[in-house]
């Protein structure tokens, strides 16, 4: 049996490989095309593999995503997250320019365009209170994790993860996320 597989002539292999390459290129082109669609998916995945303490959901059963700053997703994320559930919870997406406006969010997605100082301030604001239980995700923001953010998306679909901040926020991060993180920073800004 094995032999018959091995005996497949290179000529026969060519079309198979060609098809696969086309698939791979398609994937790449799509990724380029829908970067934020992909990022929305990533957010969904993070939500799946991060465990909030039960008291984080006192006021309702929806999982609230707050998009801070200029919304890069547009209605893509709304369409995507409509009828999507994470651990039995539906999504709610809020958009705001200030932290205050995003109060009650479980995840805060920080868009690009903030200065490092601003970011720092936002993060301090978020985690200043006890029991904030907020997963902060930075959209490729420099020193996001160093400044106390939990996950920072980096190019090529990778991300860095600050486990200390996560612990502080009393969030349990699935080991799979830890595994997949390109960099784990045990860094406490304080």
């Amino acid at each position: 049996m094995k032999k018959s597989f091995l005996n497949i002539s290179p000529l026969q292999l060519v079309p198979v490989i060609a098809v696969l390459f086309i698939l791979v290129f398609q994937q790449e082109s799509r990724a380029q095309f829908d970067e934020y669609e992909r990022k929305a998916g990533i957010i969904n995945t993070f939500a799946k593999y991060v465990n909030w303490p039960s008291k984080a959901f006192m006021e309702g059963d929806k999982l609230v995503l707050g998009i801070l700053g200029d919304d890069p997703f547009g209605d893509v994320i709304d369409n995507m997250f409509r009828n999507r559930y994470v651990n039995g919870r539906a999504w709610e997406i809020r958009r705001a320019k200030t932290i205050r406006e995003l109060k009650g969010s479980h995840i805060v997605f920080m868009a690009q365009g903030f200065k490092e100082e601003e970011v720092k301030t936002f993060l301090q604001e978020i985690y200043s209170r006890n029991n904030s239980f907020v997963l902060t995700i930075g959209d490729n923001i420099p020193n996001f994790c160093k400044n106390g953010g939990i996950i920072n998306l980096t190019p090529n679909g990778l991300y860095t993860l600050n486990i200390v901040s996560a612990n502080k926020a009393q969030l349990t991060i699935d080991v799979k996320l830890l595994n997949l993180a390109s960099d784990i920073i045990p860094y406490d800004p304080n």
Partner: peptide, 18 residues
């Protein structure tokens, strides 16, 4: 189960490793 996250995050390298 191990690779649901990597698939969702489209990270095939960890999946390959796993």
């Amino acid at each position: 189960d191990n690779n649901d996250a990597s698939v969702e995050l489209q990270q095939f390298t960890p999946a390959q490793r796993n």
